[in-house]
C-alpha cells in the first residue's frame, strides 16, 4: 500500500480519537460542544461513504464539498457563540453561503474540489480564530487557559485552515515542482486533518474534565 493511501486512511481514522473520548464518556454531550460532536459524526460518515463509493468509481467531490461546508459552519457557529454573537458575523456567514452557492452552481461546480471557496473559508476562520485568541489575551477569562476547550478548537481551526490556505494558495507551485501532482497536496492536507482531530480530542477531554471551564 502506498504511503499517501496509508496517510489517507490514518487521517480518516483519526476522527475516532475524539469520537472515542465521546464514546468513553458514555455519549455525554457537553452543552457548548454539541456541534463539534455532530461534525465528528458527519466526518466519520463522509469518510465511510467516500470509502464505499470510490470503489464504484463515483466522484467523491460532492461529498468532500458538502463536508467542507459543514465543517466551516460548525467552526463558524462555535466562534459565533464565543464571540458574543456579533451582528457582523451573521452577515459574513450569509455572504459566505452566497459565495459557496454561486461557486458550486456556476464556477467550479459540485464535481471538482471547490478550492476557491476553501481558501475563502480559510481566510475567514483564520481571522476568527486569531481574533478569538486576541480576545482571550485581552480579557484573561481564566488563570488556567489550557483547560479551556475552545482554546484547543481555535488552535485546530488556525492550524487546519492556516495550513490549507497556504496549501491551496500554492497548489499550482507544489504540483508543478513536486512529482505526484495533487497527491502531495492531499497528503499534507491529511496530516493537517490528523492534527486537527488530535486538537479536537484535547479540547473534548478538557471539556469533560473541567465542566465549568467554558466561557
Amino acid at each position: 500500500m502506498d504511503l499517501p493511501i496509508i496517510i489517507s486512511h490514518f487521517s480518516s481514522g483519526s476522527v475516532l480519537v475524539p469520537l472515542g473520548i465521546f464514546i468513553f464518556k458514555r455519549f455525554r454531550i457537553v452543552k457548548d460542544l454539541a456541534p463539534l460532536i455532530v461534525l465528528l459524526i458527519v466526518s466519520l460518515l463522509c469518510d465511510l461513504s467516500s470509502f464505499i463509493i470510490i470503489r464504484y468509481s463515483v466522484n467523491t467531490y460532492p461529498l468532500v464539498n458538502f463536508y467542507l461546508f459543514t465543517q466551516f459552519s460548525v467552526f463558524y457557529y462555535l466562534f459565533f457563540n464565543y464571540l458574543k454573537r456579533a451582528a457582523i458575523l451573521k452577515w459574513i456567514f450569509i455572504f459566505f453561503c452566497g459565495f459557496y452557492t454561486v461557486n458550486i452552481s456556476f464556477f467550479q461546480g459540485p464535481f471538482q474540489f471547490n478550492s476557491v471557496t476553501n481558501v475563502f473559508a480559510s481566510i475567514i476562520l483564520m481571522a476568527l480564530s486569531l481574533y478569538y485568541l486576541f480576545t482571550l489575551l485581552k480579557e484573561l477569562p481564566t488563570a488556567t487557559i489550557h483547560r479551556l476547550p475552545i482554546l484547543w478548537i481555535s488552535f485546530a481551526a488556525l492550524g487546519y485552515y492556516g495550513g490549507n490556505f497556504f496549501l491551496f494558495l500554492f497548489s499550482n507551485y507544489l504540483t508543478k515542482s513536486i512529482d505526484g501532482s495533487l497527491a502531495i497536496l492531499w497528503v499534507l492536507h491529511n496530516i493537517l486533518n490528523v492534527i486537527k482531530n488530535i486538537l479536537f480530542a484535547i479540547g473534548l477531554w478538557q471539556a469533560y474534565h473541567n465542566p465549568n471551564s467554558s466561557i
Partner: peptide, 21 residues
Amino acid sequence: MLVVGIATFITLYQKRILQEQ
C-alpha cells in the same frame, strides 16, 4: 510550528495573568 505557536500563546497568556494579578 503549531506546537511552538501553542506554547508561545500559553506562555504569553500566563505572563499576562501574572502581570494582571
